[in-house]
Amino acid sequence: MSPLSPEDLLAIRLSLQVALTATVLALPVGFAVAYLLALTNVRGKAVLEGIVNLPLVLPPVVTGYLLLLLLGRNGWLGHFLGLFDIRIIFTLRGAVIASAVVGFPLLVRSIRIGLEGIDKQYIQASRTLGAKWWDTLFTITIPLCSRAILAGTTLMFARSLGEFGATIVLAGNMPGVTQTIPLAIYQYTSTPGGDSMALSLCLVSIVLSFAVLLIGEAANRKLSRR
């Protein structure tokens, strides 16, 4: 008999789905923010940096509650989305947003360090050779910080897999709908006799996180050999 119930398998699938969606959605935005912080002289960089890093220092529950205030039915963004019949709270979308917001600073931080490490004369050389800024971005900047992008993506994905506090506040803990691995473990630990099931999911969580880190490291080695 499998040590995992169909609900557990669903929680694993949802976890992967949420982490993957959150990472994919956050990546272009995270790169843009990192680019702004690292390579431009726009005003208000300190404020932007503070806002981006806030979820890193705030308790995830607080982040979740702020998101609830913003995206709830009476929140100004939630109210606006409601006009188009888009609901965020207590849906999978909410889980994705919570994961994306909490993992976002890790993504931006990694990419920013990578961008700051690029010798600016590579970018200047590309421009003087006739490449427009977007051409330089795709042919020089992104390839030269690909390892940092990979590191940020891996960190964010792993963080999203383990996200709990903000998710439970914003998306709730509904089996089959918003219940991810950490939420399922939480439910087992508060249910009498659920310890063994919680342990099984803990093992799954460890294996998944370890696999993500291994894949990330393998890809990093491949990039460094180029």
Binding site: Y122, Q124, S126, R127, T128, K132, L144
Partner: peptide, 20 residues
Amino acid sequence: LPAEARRVGVVFQHAHLFPH
């Protein structure tokens, strides 16, 4: 004119060949 439109080439002190 932006750098890419000037047709003014630069050979940098340390070459700066694209490493990738």
